[in-house]
């Protein structure tokens, strides 16, 4: 028996159902909308939430970029891209500015997103309050009542214990002064990019069956205190060893031969673009060290 799959894998009814949940998410920024998450040909926890959003939205004219940990070519990005192109035949790109849909795991591209673009973030744990409240029924109530003292207390205790907010990635953010949201495990470095983003940002959690959104130009503030401000990861005096970029999120690498630590751009397509532009002699970027 041989079976042809529908355009974008799903049957049209499923796609419409996911889009309905997405519309609700856009209408209530930061609110987690439950949806009937489908099982995908890619494993739960590997981006099925993002994948379902992308597949439900994609049209024949879309241009897709997929990144994982900042890289267009990492295992999972390649796999997801392959599945989407196989079932849609659409064009893919590495350049963030060229893409209409960018699906990403754990990063927001360095190049600022534009209006009309959609950023789809893959979310493993959509519930920002799960850390201190294991029950779904309870966290739903806490959100309904805007009862976020647990989240503040969590940060306060971290400051008391460690002298810093030890959230790592996925630092909770307040959306439109109403819902506390897990921004997906993007580094704190990327949190400010959510605020007043020109692009629509959709977040999909397949296993947890939730969709939520940051519509364009929405206020998104990382949780912090008046006397203890939010801090991004520090790459002070560090720069990319390949293209020389500063002020970007860097990967820390260990040189096999010398045993020295060096850094390079985490956003690989950004790095490559800088190198290309430099070799083309356009000199747009002149901060090379």
């Amino acid at each position: 028996m041989r079976i042809e799959y529908n355009f974008a894998f799903f049957d049209e009814g499923s796609k419409r159902e996911i889009r309905r949940a997405t519309l609700k998410a856009v209408a209530i920024p930061g609110y987690q909308v439950p949806f009937a998450s489908r099982e995908m040909p890619i494993a739960r926890g590997w981006g099925t939430g993002g994948l379902q959003l992308t597949l439900s939205l994609v049209g024949k004219k879309d241009i897709l970029k997929v990144i994982d940990q900042g890289s267009d070519e990492s295992v999972n990005a390649v796999n997801i891209k392959k599945l989407i192109t196989k079932t849609t035949g659409i064009k893919v790109t590495d350049e963030a500015s060229e893409a209409t849909i960018i699906q990403s795991r754990h990063r927001i591209p360095e190049i600022p997103l534009q209006s009309g673009q959609i950023l789809v973030l893959q979310v493993p744990l959509p519930e920002p309050l799960r850390y201190y409240e294991p029950s779904e029924l309870e966290t739903k109530k806490l959100h309904a009542e805007q009862e976020y003292s647990g989240a503040w207390l969590m940060l306060f205790e971290q400051i008391m214990n460690y002298g810093t907010m030890s959230t790592g990635a996925d630092h909770p953010a307040m959306v439109h002064d109403r819902y506390v949201m897990a921004p997906s495990p993007i580094p704190r470095f990327d949190n400010p990019k959510l605020n007043h983003s020109k692009a629509l940002i959709l977040l999909g959690a397949g296993r947890e069956k939730k969709v939520y959104a940051v519509p364009p130009y929405t206020r998104v503030e990382s949780l912090a205190f008046e006397d203890f401000s939010f801090e991004v990861e520090s790459f002070k005096n560090k720069y990319c060893g390949i293209c020389g970029a500063k002020g970007v999120f860097l990967d820390e690498m260990l040189d096999d031969l010398t045993g020295e630590t060096f850094y390079q751009c985490n956003d690989t397509s950004y790095c490559l673009q800088r190198l290309n532009q430099e070799s083309a002699g356009r000199g747009i970027y002149n901060d090379r060290v």
Binding site: G45, Q69, R105, H106, R107, P124, A169, I186, P187
Partner: peptide, 18 residues
């Protein structure tokens, strides 16, 4: 099985952050 196996995916961005 999906969520357990996702631990095999690279996590260097979140790890850098941590």
């Amino acid at each position: 099985t999906g969520f357990i196996s996702h631990l095999k995916l690279p996590h260097y961005v979140t790890f850098q952050s941590k």
